[in-house]
Amino acid sequence: MSILARLALAASIATALSTPLLAAEMTVGFSQIGSESGWRAAETSVTKQQAEERGIDLKFADAQQKQENQIKAIRGFIAQGVDAILVAPVVATGWDDVLTEAKEADIPVVLLDRGVDASEDLYLASVASDQVKEGRVAGQWLVDTVGDKECKVVELQGTVGSTPAINRKKGFEEAIAGHANITIARSQTGDFTRSKGKEVMEGFIKAENGGKDICAMYAHNDDMAVGAIQAMKDAGLKPGSDIYVVSIDAVPDIFAAMVAGEANATVELTPNMAGPAFDVLAAYLKDGTKPEKFIITESKLYTPADNPQGEYDTRKGLGY
């Protein structure tokens, strides 16, 4: 190999190395709630992926569902002098002190997925989904699908009193409000779990003439929908055609159900909250661009037309 070629190779390696090296100057601390659900696990792995893609040095702290652990982690990040902090707050209250400490240390904080009850100037921005919109997108899909046909809907609510359950119910009701042919015949809580979703659906099927009167099932999350699909099959009904199945979250198993023709639509709650957060942080750290305070992620609708097999394959590896 000639000297020139060697030099060219060395130069190319140097440039290849220098790009991530430059970006790696940004160090971000991420205080995650824990791993309470599959979605949370996916959020963690997507955040790590996004950081790697951007060459960000991510310091990850798992709080195991405890606020005091999160506060400790954030104080640790401040002491280490990170460039920015991401927090998925486990509860809404009690953040003022630690956020003030971060502000005094001049470290921008971005909230992921959930909000806090603290003064807005204590954090740079918050990235979250609009749960009312999620419900609205699901409702709109049903309105567009059934047209003028009479349609009795059964609803599987999330945990009674939880914010996603209240908002997803509200959004769905808003979407079907102007359509007298679509009515919610029954609504019960399935606690966001598969087994309760199955049990509640069994009850609905008995109560609605063996399920023959039910036109659609709306579940506040995919897990309950997966349980309800099994209940329909056990009762000799065909989910997806006898009863429309629409739910929210877009976890891998609902795409598997779509592949089997047993689910009709799901609205994505994206686990990629960190991507937009990293974008605003990069812009802010570069030239101090103040981002929008409340960044809303897209609530994308997926139907069997959106390559469910492909979606299943890409999502399966995210730890859902």
């Binding site: 309470e36 659900s37 606690d191 598969r194 087994s195 199955k198 897990d223 997966v226 349980g227 099994q230």
Partner: peptide, 14 residues
């Protein structure tokens, strides 16, 4: 029985 019923082991909720 509960795991077999939903064809999955849900460690968080079972």
């Amino acid at each position: 029985i509960v795991a077999a019923d939903i064809r999955g082991a849900d460690a968080n909720n079972s």
